[in-house]
Design a protein around this nucleic acid. Structure first.
Lengths: 248, 248
DNA sequence: GGAGCGGTTTGATATATGTCAAAATGCGCG
DNA sequence: CGCGCATTTTGACATATATCAAACCGCTCC
């Protein structure tokens, strides 16, 4: 639980972009922006701090003052909100290239915890500077708006899941989403390791860990997936998708 | 279900602001911005169309192309997302002064339906113009970001509700939230009319309508609220809040 | 005023998921 | 290698909510 700020290496956004081109990092932030060489100059003004975290480290705590958004360069995080009475709920699992911290903009205080699921690196993007620069660069501005909007749409999808899907549908949705995001990053969509526990998956899906485990077992018995604790293989994608669609 | 565009009256934002000052409309959009006279000039450039809707009218459909955000000037709307298989879920009830349509920014297409719950008026805020202007006015820019961030935080709260609260806690949360928002608009927080059916409340809370009805009845039997179909009176606020806090 | 109709309440029962408990498995560490 | 701990799986049972059905209520429209 020690807050490990293993290094504080300043990085220019241009360097980020270059590194993105070769490593597929920061895709969300950088990819869709068409940059003129002139814009590139300006973007260099944005100071970005790169920091490392190890499993269990907090990127930020609920209540921390807001300064920056964070672009995940490697690894993955979970975000969770806390109820007064100690109940907590995982609100998302974020992976490489995704941006977190946007919840804090409206109150200048973080409204959830962000915790590393494994050894991870992030770039801190000072929000004041991001705003200033997006006043200069309409394409950056539009992109920032799209990222925030995407978060809203993502949350709506989870509301649908939590509000109207049954346990196995929820797990199917979770696995398919995970698979897609891995595919988008160049990893195998059909074979992967989960970084989170049954407990954490359950919290995210609004289920108890035993229910999650049973749903995994059921999919396995049906020959839809192969589960060995945290390593997953999707055997029959079509049927997994069918699970999600019809509410049988 | 006829799409009633009863009038298309252009309104300047300055006029909006003036009307706000006297009528408490558009509080979310307008209130926190400190405007210099000079800024006021610029804001006049934003063309706003005022339109009327009656109960059941769609403000936009899922799939409609995105042009504008909408500020609710009077009345109220619900937003709902649709599942392939016909299931639908209410994702929010919006009232006067709130802004809707931000889901559409990321794909340029609306991802949910917005439907009037009663006779209502909105101002359409063309998003391109809003972006252009927020490049000129940092306080507007910041405000736009806060509105979007607030939507993210709101959704997280609903995820917590749907993922970890029981039926009566959900209803208590719903009633308290409604009461607060009415109070913020100068209405009685303890006595109000619901504009939505048990079915719609249930959809929003991830419950069946019978469960919602039973929860209402239970609160009534406990002397916590007085329910007469859609007219609600909160008799014991403290106990309603207690309902929410401990998961007894 | 009464018929008809959508919405609401209430009851009886079914079922999905939660709870509790124990066994099995995986994994770090001495 | 094997001990000990955390996590996962599985089972038996409890319970919250869903489902189905009927009665009730409040409206609108004739």
């Amino acid at each position: 639980m020690t807050k490990a700020l293993t290094l504080q290496q300043p990085v220019t956004l241009t360097a980020q972009l270059r590194s993105h081109c070769s490593t597929c990092n920061l895709r969300e932030l950088c990819m869709p922006i068409d940059l003129s060489p002139n814009d590139m100059q300006r973007i260099n003004a944005l100071t970005m701090l790169k920091r490392g975290y190890s499993r269990g480290d907090y990127l930020y705590h609920c209540g921390d003052p807001f300064h920056s958004l964070y672009a995940i360069r490697s690894g993955s995080f979970k975000t969770q909100v806390l109820h007064e009475d100690g109940r907590e709920q995982v609100t998302g699992f974020q992976m490489t290239g995704e941006i977190i911290g946007m919840d804090a903009i409206c109150t200048d205080v973080h409204t959830c915890d962000a915790i590393a699921m494994e050894s991870s690196e992030v770039c801190a993007l000072p929000f004041n500077q991001l705003e200033a620069m997006s006043r200069e660069l309409p394409s950056l501005q539009r992109h920032l708006h799209k990222i925030m909007s995407r978060e809203i749409v993502r949350d709506q999808g989870i509301m649908l899941l939590l509000g109207s899907m049954r346990a196995e549908e929820r797990l199917a949705a979770f696995l398919l989403n995970f698979s897609q995001r891995l595919a988008a990053r160049g990893f195998s969509p059909s074979q992967f390791q989960l970084r989170m526990s049954r407990q954490e998956i359950g919290s995210y899906l609004g289920l108890k860990l035993e229910t999650v485990s049973r749903a995994f077992s059921h999919f396995q018995n049906e020959g839809i997936i192969n589960v060995k604790v945290r390593s997953i293989e999707i055997l029959d994608l079509a049927r997994l998708q069918a699970c999600l669609k019809c509410s049988n």
